[in-house]
Design a protein around this nucleic acid. Structure first.
Lengths: 108, 108
DNA sequence: TTCTTATTTCGCAAAAATACGAAATATATT
DNA sequence: AATATATTTCGTATTTTTGCGAAATAAGAA
């Protein structure tokens, strides 16, 4: 039957993508991945959202496995989760690299 | 002030990511990008969802700009939207390539 | 014109995401 | 022990997403 058309890979990729599906979270990830290694809630000062809301976004990124945090009282330092980042990179890379553009015949 | 911390690029990337944030849509995009160029609702036969639901997913991918459809009565043929695909590729590429892994000091 | 096929839109319900402020937590400092 | 700081959890409201079946649409074939 059509049991396993949707693989766990599709689900994993969707999970990563979903986590990136909000501008604030894109911003956070961008910052963590390029600016420096780790970070904390100085984010709150930059972003036009309540701290509790930011916290939820961080939680989502964490539960998607894209970031991780370590306690450095009284702060919490966040950084990219290297392992899953590598995975995400691979998944997105695979998906995005294989492009067979539409021949003009087809979709105008 | 903090007016423009979130740029339209963040929003665009989030829009693309959000569109990919569901296993069914990942499957569709994967199929359209690698298998052949164009496609139609034979998807409905493969996927364990109602046709109306599939239609909604296609609509979302379309409104995110990732795919486009052309009418070939009585069918509709879908394919990747090359232009936006290129854009998405660039955006995701930028985000994913720049990885400065956490030094061990930081997050354990 | 009526029928068939492929697909979408509509109306609805259930679940999840987004956002906030207030209260809770945890840990250093006084 | 009391206070201050950084952050999260809780309770709540609003909006969006997901999913379905039934009805609507569009176009070719009989």
């Amino acid at each position: 039957m059509d049991t396993n058309i949707l693989t766990s890979d599709h689900e994993q990729l969707a999970r990563f993508a979903k986590a990136l599906g909000h501008p604030v979270r894109v911003y956070i990830i961008e910052l963590l991945s390029k600016q420096s290694c780790c970070f904390s809630g100085d984010l709150a000062e930059d972003l036009p959202i309540a701290r509790s809301t930011l916290s939820q976004h961080l939680k989502e990124l964490k539960s998607a496995g894209l970031i991780q945090g370590s306690i450095e009282p009284p702060k919490i330092r966040y950084c990219i989760n290297g392992e899953n980042w590598e995975l995400a990179r691979k998944f997105f890379g695979n998906l995005l690299q294989t492009t067979k553009p539409c021949d003009e015949q087809c979709c105008n």
